[in-house]
Design a protein around this nucleic acid. Structure first.
Length: 265
DNA sequence: ATGACTTACAGGGTAAGA
């Protein structure tokens, strides 16, 4: 295995937050990046700006909403899948898969699902089922696989500043949590919780009510590692400084560090 | 609290996010 920093970042509009993205890439130099919520059509993707600072990219855009991309430092990701299997009628740009630096990377933007109950929540759960189905194949792969993105699930009450005001939210529903738990039960390693079993770690702070200033956050961006990759997990974290920058996305980049040698956990 | 704050699209006000 090669030493790598792999990150996921919900950019909340890649054109609106391109300066934030470029500043973060220059400072932290992640080797692989999964982006969500591009909110841009394919032709508006800033491929040349990213190439100028050394990043190759594959992307799946969409007008106004959704949109995912995979970046690789000093390399061109080799796309292996666009969209999840088993629903060709789904037009949302929420899943992209590519190989880069010897790792298979699944980049996902799981539906938010609010308001619930309702059709949007039904869509969330249906999408989750398709993900679980596809993830089974990836989990069993002999290749190293990371499944990274905005899962729009707060896995436990230890992943939020206070569950009380979010009890009716789709991100905390038992059905959403049960899907995430079933995914983990396939044998995936939740990288941040493996490195930090108890600590409060957040990856999202909404724009309302001064939640960033009060550190009222949620952990909803996750990196799951298959058994081929997980022994090499060395470190993980959240680049929270990015959330503090002027005109920031409401998410912060969340990352793992892969070692060249197996680690003890 | 059918809220607050921010984005895209458009060129104002709505839909969507989480």
């Amino acid at each position: 295995m090669k030493k790598l920093k792999i990150a996921t970042y919900n950019i909340n509009g890649i054109r609106a937050h391109l300066p934030n993205l470029l500043a973060w890439l220059k400072r932290e130099s992640p080797d692989i990046v999964c982006l969500q919520e591009l909110k841009a059509v394919d032709s508006a993707f800033p491929a040349s700006e990213l190439e100028a600072i050394g990043y190759g990219a594959v992307w799946q855009g969409q007008a106004s909403w959704n949109g995912v991309a995979i970046l690789a430092r000093g390399a061109q990701p080799l796309e292996s899948r666009r969209g999840l299997p088993s629903d060709p009628g789904d037009k949302h740009s929420r899943y992209l898969e590519a190989a880069a630096h010897g790792v298979v990377v699944g980049c996902l933007y799981l539906p938010n699902g609010n308001p619930q109950p309702g059709p949007k929540f039904d869509y969330k759960l249906a999408w989750f089922e398709r993900l679980i189905l596809h993830a089974q194949t990836l989990q069993a792969s002999e290749h190293p696989v990371v499944l990274a993105g905005d899962y729009n699930v707060v896995p436990t009450d230890n992943d939020i500043y206070s569950p009380r005001s979010w009890l009716k939210d789709a991100l905390l529903q038992p059905q959403s949590r049960e899907c995430f738990a079933r995914l983990l039960e396939q044998g995936w390693c939740d990288a941040l919780r493996t490195i930090y079993p108890e600590e409060r770690l957040y990856t999202f702070w909404d724009y309302f009510r001064q939640h960033w200033q009060k550190n009222s956050g949620l952990r909803i961006d996750h990196l799951l590692l298959n058994p081929t990759l997980s022994p090499y997990l060395k470190n993980a974290g959240v680049d929270a400084w990015v959330r503090n920058e002027p005109h920031a996305s409401d998410h912060a980049p969340t990352w793992i560090e892969i070692s060249s040698r197996k680690q003890r956990h």
